[in-house]
């Protein structure tokens, strides 16, 4: 067993769970706004209002009786995604890429029947995948067509880009690649590859699997340092605008690149995990403190007041915030 001293971690600026919960989530995320991200249906409707790109909503299943004849609706589509509206951590997401006769083909290639889909929907409605077991609804949405640039980088699953957005400023990004070990899932602790991305250019900085530094994808052996995300600025702006949409100060945005439609927002997370730091080989804290200090110096504290007049970001436009971040935190220009 190997341990690291807490002082060393602190010097490196690693954000710990307690610090994240109290000083960022607790302070910058207003409770009343949580449902906007915890309920994916709300996020989706809100994103439509704000014109943020998200996979299109096909329909919603909210009643048990609708499930009995659901095949009439589903047979119209080639591929679709089933999601619980209040799911967390990717639980309960079923990706159907196509059909093979009566069977539906999952992303892994496995085929399932309509009965399996019905059971999945029943479970979702009963709240099996929702945060505290509360009744839920099923969202059926468009399937993402993956951008070819990730060819050979992902095993089965969806390569998605997680960007932590603090007070509207995207501060750190990583690309999550599913592997054979992670069983097609994009969670780092299950064995997915985390690729730390340069916030200035979308290039690979550092990559890890099971917290160990790696250079090539473990399944396809493709060199990871060649990764460069296209449309980077556009993608960052999409992430930054999520702040304007939700008003939540500390969020994780999950974005995927669609072949034809460009960056698409997949979901938001009001309690983003800490493994993005492992993927980047760098702590979040210095960047978060930098943004805090920048906002504080911009809104000067008036004499006799203990707080600045506002803690809104000084750059009102998402584009300006992204440019500020690219200038300040970017490595490769």
């Amino acid at each position: 067993m190997k341990w690291v001293s807490p002082w060393r971690l602190k010097r490196m600026g690693i954000l710990g769970m307690n610090c994240r919960n109290r000083e960022f989530i607790g302070r910058y995320n207003e409770r009343e706004r949580y449902p906007l991200v915890d309920d994916k249906l709300k996020t989706k409707l809100l994103a439509e209002d704000y014109g943020l790109a998200m996979p299109a909503l096909r329909f919603v299943v909210s009643q048990q009786h609708e499930i009995g004849h659901i095949e009439r609706k589903l047979y119209d589509f080639d591929g679709f995604v089933l999601k619980p509206a209040k799911g967390s951590g990717g639980k309960g997401i079923l990706v159907i890429t196509g059909r093979h006769g009566d069977k539906f083909v999952k992303a892994s290639g496995a085929e399932i029947g309509i009965e399996d889909i019905r059971r999945h929907m029943t479970n979702t409605l009963a709240g099996l995948y929702s945060l505290s077991g509360q009744p839920d609804v099923v969202i059926v949405e468009d399937l993402i067509e993956f951008d070819d640039s990730f060819e050979g980088y992902s095993h089965e699953g969806v390569p998605d880009i997680r960007i932590v957005v603090f007070q509207g400023y995207p501060v750190m990004a990583m690309l999550r690649l599913a592997t054979h070990a992670s069983d097609g899932k994009a969670n780092l602790h299950q064995g997915a590859v985390g690729v730390g991305l340069d916030i200035g250019s979308g290039r690979c900085l550092h990559a890890v699997q099971f917290a160990q530094k790696i250079k090539r994808h473990p399944d396809t052996d493709k060199p990871l340092n060649e990764i460069r995300i296209g449309d980077w600025r556009q993608l960052m702006i999409l992430a930054a605008r999520c702040y304007d949409m939700t008003g939540l100060g500390y969020i994780g945005t999950d974005i995927v690149l669609d072949k034809s439609r460009g960056p698409q927002l997949l979901e938001l997370n009001a309690r983003p995990g800490l493994s993005i730091q492992v993927a980047n080989g760098e702590g979040l804290l210095p960047r978060l403190r930098h943004i805090e200090a920048m906002i504080r110096t911009h809104w000067k504290i008036l004499p006799g007041y203990h707080k600045p007049l506002s803690n809104r970001p000084p750059h009102a436009d998402a584009e300006d915030r992204v440019d500020y971040v690219i200038r300040t935190f970017g490595r490769h220009q």
Binding site: V4, S5, K10, N18, E23, Q277, V278
Partner: peptide, 16 residues
Amino acid sequence: YTGYKLTELRRFHDMV
């Protein structure tokens, strides 16, 4: 308390 948890000292070890 906003310091690190004991398990985090292990979790972030490889990073260091």
